[in-house]
């Protein structure tokens, strides 16, 4: 083991190779960021970064949650409901006897357990992910409504201030999420995700734990979604049982923008992160340029179709 000093380098070069696919996207994101910084010079300040990362954090978390599943060859229509669940659990427990730590733990456990349950139904029973997660979105959304029938509850003020105040804690949390993802991918279970998504039969033959990798992906996806809910609750200072609804579509949009394919094994998490950043910046820029707040829907729809259609056109041209 200690002789590894002379071993060939692998980890970082492999990471760099995975960047190639998203270079174009990263350039576009950088351009948008530069435009935003030009329009709104306040961005390059502590509070500017804080504000921006706060608007970005929930989106990046749900995009990661969706991308994990898509990499493993699945999809989830329950992301939004999971976000709502996280938000209402946080808003009903954190101000109570459980305290912030207890509440946060409960949020995470709820995400892991619900996600894993979905995963087990999909993987072990071999049912289509779309319908299972559609059903799950009703069940989880219903549970959120039971916990908190109407907007209310409370998040301790100090938590809201520290997460969504003037300090860029949210930016640090984005970094933390990415680092944790890297660690997960560095485990055999995490890396198996790609193999399970691209060619599950061959992977199984080679001894890859395909089923466990996919169920774990659903659990991690649930965890990320409820954590996004916790943050949203902290931002607003209270819980709302339907606050997450828009996140299902947005998470798919960001992942698709980032080049993550629907059939599994195509694309990379960094693409999804960049995709969510692009969506986030785009919304901010359009808002800043005085577009009505709804115009970004149109732009978003056009961009998604464009992102899907472009590879198809280029592929057609290159093959005779």
């Amino acid at each position: 083991m200690s002789a590894a000093g002379s071993a060939p380098r692998l980890y970082w070069p492999a990471q760099r190779q995975r960047n190639r696919g998203v270079k174009g996207l990263l350039t576009v994101v950088a351009a948008f960021l530069a435009l935003y910084a030009y329009l709104f010079p306040g961005l390059i300040s502590v509070s500017g970064v804080a504000k921006f990362s706060q608007s970005w954090l929930p989106l990046v978390l749900v995009s990661m949650a969706q991308a994990i599943l898509m990499l493993a060859g699945g999809v989830s229509l329950a992301i939004g409901a999971m976000v709502s669940l996280g938000a209402v659990i946080a808003a009903t427990t954190m101000a109570g006897p459980l305290g912030v730590a207890g509440g946060a733990a409960l949020v995470m456990v709820a995400g892991l357990v619900t996600g894993a349950a979905c995963g087990i139904v999909v993987v072990r029973l071999g049912l289509p992910a779309i319908v299972v997660t559609l059903a799950a979105s009703f069940i989880v959304g219903g549970a959120a409504l039971l916990i908190l029938p109407r907007p209310g509850g409370a998040i301790p003020a100090w938590l809201s201030d520290s997460l969504a105040g003037e300090t860029p804690v949210a930016a640090l949390l984005v970094i933390l999420a990415v680092v944790l993802w890297k660690l997960y991918l560095a485990t055999p279970l995490g890396l198996s995700l790609y193999a399970a998504g691209e060619n599950s039969v061959a992977a199984y033959r080679a001894g890859v734990p395909v089923d466990s990798a996919r169920i774990a992906a659903y659990a991690v996806s649930g965890l990320l979604s409820t954590c996004a809910g916790l943050f949203v609750a902290a931002q607003t200072g209270s819980g709302d049982p339907v606050i997450g609804e828009a996140f299902t579509l947005n998470s798919i949009a960001a992942a698709v923008l980032g080049g993550v394919g629907f059939l599994g094994g195509r694309g990379a998490m960094r693409g999804a992160v960049a995709g969510s950043l692009l969506l986030s910046v785009m919304i901010n820029v359009m808002y800043f340029l005085g577009f009505p707040p709804v115009a970004h829907y149109i732009a978003q729809g056009l961009i998604i179709v464009g992102a899907v259609a472009l590879p198809e056109f280029t592929a057609r041209r290159s093959s005779p």
Binding site: A253, Y297, I298, V305, V308
Partner: peptide, 17 residues
């Protein structure tokens, strides 16, 4: 799913406009 979702998003914006 992507195509119809994108269409839904697009229409949603168009409608509010």
């Amino acid at each position: 799913m992507i195509m119809t979702l994108a269409m839904a998003t697009f229409l949603q914006g168009l409608l509010i406009l």
